[in-house]
């Protein structure tokens, strides 16, 4: 384990107004350390996605502080939050959110392009990450030509290609069968093998806890428990780290 890459202290998030107002997060404090994969579990409506939004700098908490790699998000405007995401965070979404008009390689390269990493190096890096997720032969395939598992692997490649310190994954296996889900989780777990990188996976799937260093439980907007799985999958079962140390 290494230093905390993400810390949330006393985070409260109130969504909506008037009668529709909901306290989605209630005084949540947690940290995400380098070199660990944390699984966040909880029932629907428990506040998982809201917490992911706050930790991912997409939603400003009503109260509390969030630090990303030592930077406070307090008072940051939308562009500053986007810059933090660009610099430190990679996202993996449940529905992949690949660009249907771009090829697999272009989808990945887009994450570099928005970071102004272009040209030969960017293409080489894209090819390298595609190879790591086992899709180098699908570089020029469009998302519609890929299976769900392959699409999610492209989405993971997009999230990791710029080598962010933090990977946030929202239900990354929800749309996948067991085999593909396991494959995706192995890739995410291997990402977290480096001391200065961390992965947070939000999921309903209890089978994924095998990949976790820690499991956090959330309910009604509060962290209700934390445990360290006993039967964690060993390093030797994981693929090579797609992110360079």
């Amino acid at each position: 384990m290494s230093e905390a890459l993400v810390t949330a202290t006393g985070v409260t998030s109130v969504l909506g107004t008037g009668a529709a107002q909901v306290r989605a997060l209630n005084n949540v404090s947690l940290s995400l350390n380098g070199g660990e994969l944390v699984v966040l579990m909880g029932p629907s409506g428990s506040g998982k996605t809201t917490l992911l939004s706050v930790l991912g700098c997409m939603l400003t908490p009503t109260e509390g502080n969030v630090h990303i790699c030592g930077l406070s998000t307090a008072g940051a405007d939308a562009e500053e939050l986007a810059a933090i995401r660009r610099r430190f965070i990679g996202f993996v979404f449940q529905s992949y959110h690949l660009f249907p008009t771009l090829t697999a390689a272009e989808n990945i390269q887009l994450a570099l392009d928005v970071r102004k990493q272009r040209g030969r190096k960017a293409r080489a890096r894209t090819a390298e990450v595609l190879k790591t997720v086992g899709l180098n032969h699908k570089a020029r395939a469009f998302p519609r030509e890929l299976s769900g598992g392959e699409q999610q692997r492209v989405a993971i490649a997009r999230a990791i290609v710029a080598e962010p310190a933090i990977i946030l994954a929202d239900e990354p296996t929800a749309a996948l069968d067991g085999t593909n889900g396991q494959a995706v989780m192995k890739i995410l777990a291997s990402v977290a093998r480096v001391p200065h990188r961390a992965v947070l996976v939000v999921t309903h799937d209890t089978r994924l806890t095998n990949f976790a260093d820690r499991v956090l439980y959330i309910e009604d907007g509060r962290i209700t428990g934390e445990e360290r799985p006993r039967s964690k999958i060993g390093l030797e079962e994981l693929p090579a780290n797609p992110l360079r140390a």
Binding site: A78, E79, A82, A83, R85, R86, G90, H97, V114, R115
Partner: peptide, 9 residues
């Protein structure tokens, strides 16, 4: 999605 992955407006 572009915005979420950190792209500038």
């Amino acid at each position: 999605t572009l915005r979420a992955i950190g792209c500038a407006k």
